[in-house]
């Protein structure tokens, strides 16, 4: 089967919100005749926005991991946990299976997102035609798993609300969890700003 033509080559574009197909226009203020949202063939300033948000996320990722995210206090002890030490404690004392899930959501997913988004942005900037289909798949993976990193943030929220036994036992959120929440939102925004159509645009080879 031959390769299907692309909308941009046929003088068409599709609304990014409702998918209505219209004639191509350079007009930045053109609106979709059906849903009224702004029409654009490619997301505006996609690469620079995605880079800016990704770099910001990477910066916040440092305090998110260095600062503790949760304090467990009882009469005899006070215990501050970072993301990593929390996972190790869950591995030892709770359930190794859940520890693996939390490790995946809090450590592997964010790191993979940084690597994949960085790789996608660099290859798009170099107009690389290399492994386009695989890169498209990587992008869909990032979009699919991105928000699962909020897992640890919600765990801290629930425990802080639950463990409120005055001086006997108390769980409190610490600044790390705020940074981590910000990291997740910034990486999601970065992935949303990236336009996967760019993977298929201006390829040098082929």
């Amino acid at each position: 089967m031959s390769t299907p033509p692309r909308a941009i080559d046929l003088g068409m574009m599709a609304c990014h919100v409702c998918r209505q197909v219209t004639a191509y226009t350079e007009d930045r203020h053109a609106r979709c005749p059906r849903c009224g949202n702004t029409l654009h063939a490619r997301k505006h300033a996609s690469v620079s926005r995605a880079w800016a948000l990704l770099v910001a996320a990477a910066i916040f990722y440092i305090p998110a991991n260095v600062f503790p995210i949760m304090r467990t206090q009882s009469i005899s002890s006070r215990d501050d946990n970072t993301i990593l030490s929390g996972i190790m404690e869950l591995w030892r004392a709770g359930s190794p299976g859940l520890a693996v899930i939390v490790f995946t959501a809090s450590i592997i997913v964010p790191v993979l997102k940084f690597l994949i988004m960085g790789f996608l942005l660099v290859t798009v900037q170099r107009s690389s035609g290399m492994v386009a289909r695989q890169r498209a798949r990587l992008y869909r993976f990032v979009e699919l798993v991105g928000y699962w990193s909020m897992l640890d943030v919600f765990v801290v929220a629930i425990l802080s609300a639950l463990v409120h036994f005055k001086i006997l036992s108390r769980v409190e959120p610490l600044p790390g969890v705020v940074y981590f929440g910000i990291v997740v939102v910034l990486t999601m925004l970065s992935a949303m700003s990236f336009d996967p159509r760019l993977i298929w645009d201006n390829r040098k080879s082929q």
Binding site: R19, V21, W200
Partner: peptide
């Protein structure tokens, strides 16, 4: 693509005839 480059849209008038087209949101096909 090779036989009929560009301007395919000119032959489609208005929204009615684009109703049955679908564009891939990820690669623009």
């Amino acid at each position: 693509h090779r036989e009929r480059p560009v301007a395919a849209f000119d032959r489609l008038d208005g929204m009615q005839r684009t109703q049955n087209l679908i564009v891939c949101e990820h690669c623009d096909s």
